[in-house]
Every structure is written in structure tokens, then in C-alpha cells.
């Protein structure tokens, strides 16, 4: 098995905790992993991405070649489109629909969503709203990861265990809120993917 994943968002939105959970889950399954992330200047509200690769075979490059990512997971809608050159022909795009507007020329929301809708394999969800509904407003990241989980070749239980390991020191309550968020995202995808 192999999953090449592009994570995207805006600096400060916390895409790295998604990467950390998937990383832990990969370790639990004795998979190889490489994860390239962005530190430094872009973390100040700029566009950020992370290349996350997991495989049962040893991984060579830290970067995913163009046109070959299995999935783009984005916590911000416009950012999800920035990495389309990496998405493979059969790849899925899973994105939050809540925009992060910190630039004056942010595109028109309707047109932006229409652009994402035009892709053959995509899941668009309002992760912020879902997170609020389940009373875990700070876990929209995990909602997104849950929505992406059907397309990642790792047992769902391992992702839950990943959350336990990453959030464990913040207490049982935080762990449970994040597991609930993961589940809510998963349920959304199961209902909405064609």
C-alpha cells in the first residue's frame, strides 16, 4: 500500500497536527513514512503545505512528484486548489468550505466553491460548522481528517489511536472531543461520497 497526501492550509491553522496523527497511525502499522513540512516565514499567515507519504515499502523522495498525490486534504478551500498540479488522475480532494480571509483579493466564494465542485472526486464540508455542532469547535482539523480517512489506506482505529497519542497529554476530554470530530467527518464522507 501507499498513500501520497498533500496537506494544505494557511500558516497557523494547524495542518501539522493532522500530519502528526496520520504519522502515529502509520507507525502503529509498521509503515514507512516521510513528511516534509514548512517552517519559517510562511508560517505567518501565508500559504503552507506538507507532503505526507506513507508506504509499506521504503520511501525515496521527501517530495511527492507532480500528478501523483492520492489525496489533497485542505483545511481551507482556496488553498486546496493551489496544489492541484500534484493530484493524480484518480485522486480525491477533501476540503473545508470555511474560508480563511486574510488577503484583500480573496476570490468570490460562490465561484471558488463551483471550481472545487467541478472536480470529479471531491468532498467539501463545513468542518467548522460540524465541529461546532458536536461541541468541539477547536477540532475542525480532525473533522477534515475524518472526512479524508476513507481514502487513506490505514485502519480507522489506528487514526483514533494516533489522536490518543498526540492529544493524550492534554487530557481525556480533549482526546474524546477529537475522536468525536474524526467520527463526524468520517460519517459525512461515508454519506456524501459517490
Amino acid at each position: 500500500m501507499k498513500s501520497d497526501i498533500i496537506l494544505s492550509g494557511v500558516g497557523g491553522q494547524g495542518i501539522l497536527s493532522i500530519a502528526a496523527v496520520v504519522g502515529m497511525a502509520a507507525l502503529e502499522n509498521d509503515l514507512y513514512l516521510k513528511q516534509a513540512e514548512v517552517h519559517g516565514m510562511s508560517q505567518r499567515g501565508g500559504a503552507v503545505q506538507s507532503h505526507l507519504r506513507i508506504s509499506e515499502k521504503e520511501i525515496a523522495s521527501d517530495l511527492i512528484p507532480e500528478g501523483s498525490a492520492d489525496i489533497i486534504i485542505s483545511v481551507e478551500p482556496m488553498e486546496s486548489l493551489r496544489y492541484l498540479p500534484w493530484l493524480s488522475e484518480n485522486g480525491w480532494l477533501v476540503t473545508n468550505s470555511t474560508p480563511f480571509v486574510n488577503i484583500p483579493n480573496y476570490p468570490d466564494m460562490e465561484k471558488l466553491l463551483a471550481e472545487i465542485e467541478s472536480l470529479p472526486r471531491r468532498i467539501i464540508l463545513n468542518a467548522d460548522e460540524i465541529a461546532r455542532q458536536i461541541k468541539s469547535p477547536r477540532s475542525s482539523n480532525m473533522v477534515i481528517l475524518g472526512a479524508a480517512s476513507p481514502f487513506i489506506d490505514i485502519p480507522y482505529k489506528s487514526l483514533e489511536n494516533g489522536i490518543r497519542k498526540i492529544f493524550g497529554r492534554k487530557g481525556d476530554k480533549v482526546v474524546q472531543l477529537n475522536i468525536d470530530a474524526l467520527k463526524a467527518g468520517r460519517d459525512f464522507s461515508e454519506t456524501n461520497k459517490k
Binding site: S42, A47, E66, G67, L84
Partner: peptide, 18 residues
């Protein structure tokens, strides 16, 4: 090399900021 899709023109730059 494989070529993926182009970045749609609707996507604008998002530079870092204070």
C-alpha cells in the same frame, strides 16, 4: 513526467503577513 491539473486562475497569492 506526469502532469497534474493546472492551478485554477481563481487562486490568488497568499503571502505571509504580520
Amino acid at each position: 513526467v506526469k502532469t497534474g491539473m493546472k492551478i485554477p486562475s481563481i487562486v490568488t497569492n497568499r503571502p505571509p503577513e504580520l
